[in-house]
Nucleic acid binder design. Sequence first.
DNA 1: GCCTAAGAACCGTACACGCC
DNA 2: GGCGTGTACGGTTCTTAGGC
Length: 329
Amino acid sequence: MFINQREVPAEFLYYQALAARRNLSPDEQFQFSNIQKGFEGECLYDQIFDEVGHQNVYIFRDLYLKIGGSVTQYDSIVISDENVTINEIKNFQGDLHYEKENWYKNGYLLEDDAFSQLRRAKGKLIKLSKNSDVKFDVEGSLIFINDDFRLTAEDQTVFEKTVTRSYVRNYMKKLNSRNRGNRAKKIANIINKHKVSNEFFDKNPDISMLKLGLYCGECKSYDLEKNKFHFTCNLCGTRETYETHVLRAINDYKFLFYNQPITKNAILKLINYEIKKSAVGRILKKYCNLESQGRSSVHIFKYYDLKAAKASAGEPRYKDKLVKYVSSK
DNA sequence: GCCTAAGAACCGTACACGCC
DNA sequence: GGCGTGTACGGTTCTTAGGC
């Protein structure tokens, strides 16, 4: 039983918004691609767990826990009456070799040691168990979700801590063969109490380097024609309402300037004043909670991202007409 | 430090126009 | 006809600067 939704990572949405407003550096492009791949792996993990069934366990997904003063990220925590299992999901592709706490791909050393990451995450939960009324055992596995992945290692104990794609279904079935009773519920409550938001995310790009204005949601072109109720993309023909454009700007602003307050003027600046102040104000009012009045009004986006906002808004009066765009690159 | 005025930022309302 | 949008106007709240 999934307890929470797995949301698109804030860092992914940051790079997505950034890529629409300036060229990414090779390092940013690499990070963006890594995050996207990682998220795809996590979604695949959820999908397989859905197919196998998870009704006998509680599952937290993409969770940040503050334990002992520091915050640790967990891809998945499976809770049963018997124990707590951490799954660190990796979407590695190709041939990897593990030796002396190092990972090698095609002979090159990879930066992070996934086992250390898993050990740290496990250690934090053990600490939580020790300090709680309900004591629980913690185990953890690295899940290599990509079917195009092969692992070699001299130390055979490595394979006891890892699950590759061909064994994932059996592994999940085994997890789901446990019991979800009162004890599991208590453990889930303890973990839930330590949940915090993503504190690792603190990007803040230089706004002077960003392209301001409105862009097409399909092909990302800034060549738009303003109509009475819509903007039409001159490149792909996609027609989107003012509301869609302002919502995209609110979403971009939220993830580009993660810890900065959303004001009407900040959004107007980001869209280069291409939509009237009153219309922007009305849309902000619809999709945000107003935190203070007067000069320093701050808008708190009610939704996690653009997709969630559009999903909750229901059928709009003025509709978008998306034209499927195929990049020529 | 306190008071005041000017200006900025934001909100609310009204009305005409025109799309759905 | 209902409602989104543009425009205009006035009110409220806050910041800033200047005088005392």
